[in-house]
Amino acid sequence: MSDYFEKKDLVDFANIGEYAEEEGGKFFEYYGKSMSEGKLSKREKCLIALTIAVVQKCPYCIDAYTNESLKLGITKEEMMEAIHVGASMQAGIVLAHSTQMRKIIKKKEM
């Protein structure tokens, strides 16, 4: 297991188009466009990316977007506030799925 998620592998992200260059190229074009400044600022997009990275538990993305957030002058309090949005969304999603459970309970219960 020690070979999984090594910090040095983060730099290999640039090579993920290997063996499928056309698709890889199109991905990077899409990635670059969607992360660049638009109606949302770079700062806002960075906080969205950081939150998704933590929610999805991707160590590479957490490393990349924590550093990018620091570089953009985002404070640790702002980062943690964003993570709580992710955490409450996750909790809400879990609780919302209990609707299925409650519907079944209500149908089956005497």
Binding site: E37, K42, N67, L70, K71, L72, G73
Partner: peptide, 20 residues
């Protein structure tokens, strides 16, 4: 002048200037 506070490189100058 903005120097990063810590062991990081500076981010995008335009984005930082807008926020400052």
């Amino acid at each position: 002048v903005h120097n990063p506070v810590g062991a990081i490189l500076p981010g995008d100058q335009n984005a930082l200037e807008t926020e400052f």
